[in-house]
């Protein structure tokens, strides 16, 4: 038996119309506010260098490009996982979730390396308001991705153990919303932080 909130079949359970999925969407809206506040903060202090380095001196566009690619591909692979879910192919879901995880982990790994490099070269978050805002904005996105990775791991386990059920499908749908949402946020991060910083 399943409650009406989640839907009865895998298909209905993984549609935006169920109550839980609608609720999760509302949560994402509150997250949009969080990111907009951080963007506002960043834009306000983006030229407060305090004698520290400026954007174009520290951003490695090559790495950022790799990060972007990793995240974009992970969105595609997640889409493939969802297609397999609708076809109720358990192994396909597992495979594509695993690949998505690898892409996501690559993204986080690159970001952590970037952060460590910056700190190492004396451009840590305590250097200037600009760098505080940079680390906080990019780091908040990175933290979201990290939680997304944990969630992917958990869902991998659920699919492996429980197989494909309406409840599992419902959860995967929310995870996919979350994952694509982070992609969109990243596009904005990429353009307002990195591109604009390098162009300056």
């Amino acid at each position: 038996m399943s409650h009406a909130a989640e839907g009865a079949s895998v298909h209905t359970a993984s549609s935006p119309n169920t109550m839980v999925n609608f609720g999760f969407w509302v949560y994402l809206m509150s997250d949009v506010i969080i990111f907009s506040m951080l963007f506002t903060m960043f834009v306000t202090v983006q030229s407060h260098y305090n004698g520290g380095p400026q954007g174009h001196q520290i951003f490695e566009l090559r790495d950022v490009f790799l990060e972007t690619m990793a995240l974009l591909f992970s969105s595609i692979t997640f889409g493939l996982a969802m297609l397999n879910l609708h076809a109720e192919k358990k192994n396909g879901v597992l495979l594509w979730l695993a690949i998505t995880f690898l892409f996501g982990a690559t993204f986080v790994g690159l970001e952590v390396r970037e952060f460590l490099n910056l700190v190492h070269h004396g451009a840590g978050p305590d250097t200037s308001a600009f760098l505080s805002a940079f680390f906080t904005l990019v780091g908040t996105h990175g933290t979201h991705v990290t939680f997304g990775l944990i969630w992917i791991a958990v869902m991998f386990g659920q699919v492996a153990v429980k197989g494909i059920s309406p409840k599992v499908g419902s959860r995967l749908f929310r995870l996919s919303l979350f994952w694509h949402f982070l992609d969109i946020v990243w596009i904005v991060v990429f353009s307002t932080v990195y591109l604009a910083g390098v162009v300056q």
Binding site: H48, N50, D126, T127, S128, A129, A133
Partner: peptide, 9 residues
């Protein structure tokens, strides 16, 4: 960090 401090921008 230096979001609201008097120094550091």
């Amino acid at each position: 960090m230096h979001f609201f401090t008097s120094d550091g921008g």
